[in-house]
Amino acid sequence: MFESLVQDNFCQSSAQFSQILASLTPSLQSLMTAARFALKNAANEDYLFPHFPQTNVQELMLKYETQNELLTAEDLTNIENDVPFSEQPPTPSPQDTEDPLISAWKILVWKKRQSRYERIRIQKHSDVITGEIQEEEMFNLDDKQLLSRQQITMRMESDRESHKRSKETLWIVNRPHEPNYVTEEEFAHNYWNKVQKMSSEEYSSLLDVLGDLNKLVRSSFKDNIA
């Protein structure tokens, strides 16, 4: 009985969530509604928060960050021989059971590898241009496969905008509903432990700033004898 109830609940919220997702519009309100629903029913919906094989993702992320391990020995040989990068991007097939997150990271790593490969190859083998060169030629703006000038500008702008938005909620702290006051533990977790000890350099610079400010204020007081 209990199991069937849980099952019902699961199906219900799952169906509801599918409906929300189907009618999702790019408006912020719609996205917020969907996110709120997902968080509220997180316990019922295992598929929403799958357990990724963390190690795989971390490995890929590390690979993305570290430049030295990105290129294989074969790549280096190909660069020496001035062979253009030819490897196709990893495309996950519909039957593939691999987690989409891992597939996404694999594509990113491939892209980074290609970029680095071409950068080194151009520097090693292409002629150094000393004269005038057009903008389109420098950034390959005429290549239809790559982003156009307008697209690049738009992406820059939207990146800035999302960066700005991401900072709008920085001050938000997740507080427990009870108790109504800030407990010592909560204070320590949210505030106290977030402030780290200053290094001696930082400390002296802080003192300098404070000292200057003190001097400034002192000199502005008229009954200052000094």
């Binding site: 970029s115 950068r119 002629d127 030629e137 982003l147 690049i152």
Partner: peptide
Amino acid sequence: EMLQPAVHKS
């Protein structure tokens, strides 16, 4: 990635 120079300009 978007603005990687495609040439080597001195």
